[in-house]
Design a protein around this nucleic acid. Structure first.
Lengths: 225, 225
DNA sequence: GGCAATAGTTTGTGATCAAATTATCTTTGC
DNA sequence: GCAAAGATAATTTGATCACAAACTATTGCC
């Protein structure tokens, strides 16, 4: 789909913003493989826009660590490495546990309901083998919860982390599919209902560990902490 | 100083990159007041370059939370608020303690020496009332230490936090000067020499608390945690 | 005198083009 | 046959322009 076909719905939103959102989604939910090189003109042609808005969107994504700028001025999807995976894992544990704890303080019954709905969608995606659906649901679940923390600064940092491992996940699921995936959100939901902070932290750490463990395993990396 | 006068030293580096670095420094070390509006043409004229590279640099700085993009497409230095200060404080404690702990594992005698040199410069700046010198020294001290953690991902997140409170600090020092500032780095240095992780964490938390406490105090905000 | 409509100014956005830089292909010399 | 050097192609970069949206100041009306 080029941007042109979506222009009616996005009236008033600048083109560079639309390009940014589209590229970010593709990076986040598996539209690109790690290490893939992209060019401004290539993206512009593909999206049916001029080079200018692509330049702004790409600069922005580079600043968000979603794209990598090399010394020779070429741009690519960041490649995978053990160091990066470990770092992201460690940072996620630190920040997302904090966000979940803060969210717990401002959680209503309607929020539990909303999270349960998202979890149902995740189950459906797992059953039908819909990789992208699972990734979108997973993202939605986590950031719906975090949004309740009212910690905008932290949320931005965590989003920064998620775009970095998006392409990695695609690599993993592309190999193994959704078969081996368990839905770790059930335990989190139970902890949320009980307002049990300790249990929530444990569930989250388990969820993060599963995702990151999958990446490392699938890439043939060592499994020590 | 316009960019033109520095062009000889920065040969080969694209103009948008030079603009980015220059603007980032100004934001980080007190060249702008919180809430100040900026325009692309205004910055371009001021720096003696065309609007194009400024657009790319500003887009990048917005993505890094160093600048704020409003709904009416105007750009400004983010304004101060209690929520933001508290959030940054909380995030800094979390991430910088982690970074310092990791850095402790890879610290050599030459690093201690380097940090001591930076601390001497900070002392000098404090004595002479050189606000910008203090801010630069403080930045250098922290990120020299953090660079030893070899955690590039975390470092980027923390840099993201620092550009956000840079303008706030300027506001504070502009009022009270460097008179009330103590140098909290002495204790950190002692802890580093002794490889005492607990003491290092305590020193860091104290240092962060002082900086953030200063902001809140100076802005007349409440002082509760 | 206060408010709303309007004209004029400022500013962001997107397209196009030329220049500079980098990559790729081809050819030449050993 | 292979490596180095030159030519060619592709790409980024920066400037300029036209246009649209937003803001400001003025004017006219009630």
């Amino acid at each position: 789909m080029t941007l042109q076909s979506a222009v009616a719905a996005d009236a008033g939103i600048p083109v560079h913003e639309q390009v940014y959102r589209q590229l970010r989604e593709r990076i986040l939910f598996g539209g690109f493989l790690p290490g893939k090189a992209v060019t401004l003109r290539g993206l512009a042609d593909e999206l049916g826009v001029s080079a200018m808005p692509v330049r702004e969107a790409v600069r922005r994504l580079i600043a968000e660590n979603a794209l990598e700028l090399h010394g020779n001025r070429r741009v690519s999807i960041p490649d995978v490495s053990q160091e990066i995976v470990d770092e992201i894992w460690s940072a996620r544990r630190l920040l997302e546990v904090e966000l979940a704890s803060k969210a717990l303080l401002h959680l209503g019954d309607d929020d539990i309901k909303a999270l349960q709905d998202i979890d149902d969608q995740i189950d459906l995606a797992l059953e039908t083998g819909d990789v992208e659906g699972y990734m979108r649901g997973n993202y939605e679940f986590h950031f719906y919860l975090y949004s309740k923390s009212r910690s905008e600064v932290l949320i931005k940092l965590v989003k920064n982390l998620w775009v970095q491992f998006g392409p990695f996940m695609r690599l993993v699921y592309g190999r193994s599919g959704t078969a081996n995936l368990e839905d770790q959100h059930k335990q989190a939901l139970e902890a949320l209902k009980a307002l049990d902070q300790k249990a929530l932290q444990a569930a989250l750490e388990e969820d993060i560990a599963q995702g990151m463990g999958f990446i490392r395993e699938s890439l043939g990396l060592s499994d020590k902490a």
